[in-house]
Amino acid sequence: MAARVRALETILTQKGLIDPAAIDVIVDTYETKVGPRNGARVVAKAWSDPAFADWLRRDATAAIVSLGYGGRQGEHMQAVFNSSDTHNMVVCTLCSCYPWSVLGLPPVWYKAPPYRSRAVIDPRSVLAEFGVELPADKAVRVWDSTAELRYLVIPERPAGTEGWDEERLAALVTRDSMIGTGLAREPEAT
């Protein structure tokens, strides 16, 4: 595969369609600069700043860009808030659409057929495999991402974090909690 990719890169460079230096910048960006820490900062701000949370609810794309995390595919973002009666979970049944700008590249399981097919049909058993047991009366809502619209789950703020600053709060926000296959960490677990 390596030789084939090199061949493609050579052809596309010769045709003036790509610039190898720009390719290196993209690789470097996704390897080192973009990742779930971006999303964790969005969640921590939403927990501590009601005005930001409100903006995130109304126009997540703009609210997220205001923190410097812009999408490269021109996709729209929607923030879905977990509450005491609803748990949200995100999948892409079509392929692997994912909010790259706030979560980086998707984990292996997100791209794999079992998750893509089962998340919609039987979300509770998928959640159980991730170690998430929800009360029976809590609704599970599954959001199917598309190329145009990606979702970010805003997990519930753990109890016992009153007065915490955003940086401390962000450390409780895991990648899985923003996909909906996990919950935010409890304070004593950090």
Binding site: M1, D19, Y30, P107
Partner: peptide, 24 residues
């Protein structure tokens, strides 16, 4: 790049192929 599931790309060619699509 790594996450708790291991590397995001399993080999450099995967990162190159990914980046070419983003660039195009």
């Amino acid at each position: 790049p790594a996450d708790s599931d291991g590397p995001v790309f399993a080999a450099p060619w995967q990162a190159q192929a990914f980046a070419m699509v983003v660039a195009l």
